[in-house]
Each structure stands twice: as structure tokens, then as C-alpha cells.
Design a protein around this nucleic acid. Structure first.
Lengths: 150, 150
DNA sequence: CTTGACCCTGTAGTGGCTACAGGGTGTGTA
DNA sequence: TACACACCCTGTAGCCACTACAGGGTCAAG
């Protein structure tokens, strides 16, 4: 299987596969006479594992850790559970933070009906007010989880 | 006021202020004889606006748009409302996506008690399973809002 | 013998900072 | 005077997980 087919099968881009190889998540496959990468079932399975983890929003570093257990089936899986717990805590913290954000934005939005001039716009006025200490959640709480933009 | 004081007052780093200046969010201030930046109240107020927006997880691009209205008080504020609505929709979409993620992670976590070997670990087994079409949310839905990591 | 789909390597860009390196300024103390 | 130390300057590189080229090679069909 060439890289394009694997990309289609897995739903990710060709360049992403080469990136995973550079990052050491996917082993470098054999090459054809024309220097094309030749992938087998093992690669496809490993990639499925990686994509499953990515769909759960794990970092490549977390995935590297999980792959190490995947590659050493005799090891105790204690750390795997810890990693999922930690990741879950990150996600939960991020949800709480975004909910606080949502509340703040709804309140903000209610301050104007969109028919004023900028001068009188309640939204712009509110945004001009400096924030108090703990008025909006500390991103530190959900450290390593991103904001509202992806 | 020098840059360090403004940084302390606003709670952001000195390098962030220079970054905002490069990005055109903060105007370049006057300089002292020693070439130090000299900020006034206008800068502090503008920075408060920016930090308020950032606390609401807006992008610098969104903030640039809002600042344009801040700077042109005679313009109708219709677009301001639209921008907040759009941002709010992004945040709401991201929350839904993270909640789906949380559910999936809780289910995953329940598959192992952490006392197995990696070979038998239900978590690793589940992660090895390729994902179906719509099994986890399409990040496209919450476009421009980030994943679980910051 | 040309078209077009595919493949290769290598490099740069994304956002919003953060962290240097390598230098200058200004105040307080020995 | 000499030095330490905190602060400031510019410019560049790094973070993450890709994404998007530029500039070239390969191969089957028409």
C-alpha cells in the first residue's frame, strides 16, 4: 500500500503520515524501487490506534506513551489508566472553563441590541472595563488544554 | 510608565506587550532618551480592553475588529454583536464536542482497572479499534476552537 | 510523447505567546 | 570609582500538530 491509499483509508493527509514518521509514531516503512513508501497491515493498525487517540484529543506525547505499552504487552498497564484519568481531568476542567466563558459571553451579548453607535454600545463599554482578579477562570486550571480556537 | 510596570499592572508579560505592538494592537508609544517605551493611561486602557477580550478567548484578529469600533465611535455597532454571536457559537460548539469527548473517555476508562498487563488492558484494546465514521465529533463543527490542549 | 496522478525531500507558515542571546541603561552600594 | 543588579532594547527561535508550498522524480494511460 502506498502513502496515498493509507491516507484515504485512515482519513488523514499524506503529509500528516510523513509527519508521524518524522515524529517516530509510525515506523519508517520499506521503500519501493522508485523510493515510494510501502505500508503493510501493521502500519495501518498502528495508525488506527494513533488516529483513535487523536480523536480523543490526546497529544502526540501521550500517544507515544500509550504506544510504548502497545509495543510491550507484558508491562503492567497501571500508567495507562493514570494517563487517561489525567487527560479526562484536563477535558473536564476545560469544559468548566468554557462554560464560564459562555456565561460571560451571554451576559456581554445582552448589553447591546446591535442598533447603537459604537460609542454607546454596551458590549464595547463592558469590554473596556478592566477585569477583576478572579472574574474569569485562570487558564492554569485546565493547563495544556487549549482555548476556544482550534 | 515603563513596560515592566504596565506588564505588572495588566498581569501579562513584557514580551507579550512588545508582541501586541508588533501585531498592531497597541500603538507604538513614545520613547525615553534611553529608548525605553513610555506608556500612558490611553495605552493602559487599550490594553485592558485587549486583555478582557483575550480572557474571553477571542483571537487577536477578532480583537483587531473590535478595536476598530472602539476607535470609530460613530460607526454602527451591528458587526460587534455579530462577532460576539459567532464567538459564542464557537464556544458552545466546542463545549458540546468536549462533552462528547468526556463521555467517550469515561467509557474508555471503565474498560480497565489498571491491574492488567498491557496485553489484556481493555483501554489499549479499545484504542486499537479503528473508529467509525461519526463515532467522535468532527472538529470541523467547532472550527477555529482548539482541542483539549492549550 | 505528453498528460496527469501520484510520489519524494525540504522548508516555511499557522496563533499567541515564551524564551533566549547579546547588548545598553540607571540606581544603589562598597 | 567600581561593581552589582534590575530593568530595558532588538532579533531570533521554539512551542504544537499539522498544512502548504517549491522543486523535483515516477509511472500508467491515451
Amino acid at each position: 500500500m502506498r502513502i496515498g491509499e493509507l491516507a484515504r483509508q485512515s482519513g488523514c493527509g499524506v503529509e500528516t503520515l510523513r509527519y508521524y514518521e518524522r515524529e517516530g509514531l509510525l515506523p519508517a516503512p520499506a521503500r519501493s524501487a522508485a523510493n515510494y513508501r510501502q505500508y503493510g497491515e501493521r502500519h495501518a493498525e498502528r495508525l488506527a490506534f494513533i488516529r483513535h487517540c487523536r480523536a480523543l484529543d490526546m497529544t502526540l506525547e501521550e500517544i507515544r506513551t500509550l504506544l510504548a505499552y502497545h509495543d510491550h504487552p507484558e508491562r503492567p498497564c497501571h500508567e495507562v489508566n493514570g494517563l487517561i484519568d489525567a487527560h479526562l481531568a484536563h477535558v473536564a476542567a476545560r469544559i468548566r472553563q468554557l462554560q464560564a466563558l459562555e456565561t460571560a459571553l451571554v451576559t456581554l451579548r445582552a448589553r447591546c441590541n446591535g442598533e447603537a453607535e459604537a460609542e454607546a454600545c454596551g458590549i464595547l463599554r463592558e469590554l473596556s472595563r478592566p477585569l477583576g482578579e478572579d472574574e474569569l477562570p485562570d487558564p492554569g486550571e485546565g493547563a495544556h488544554l487549549p482555548g476556544a480556537h482550534g
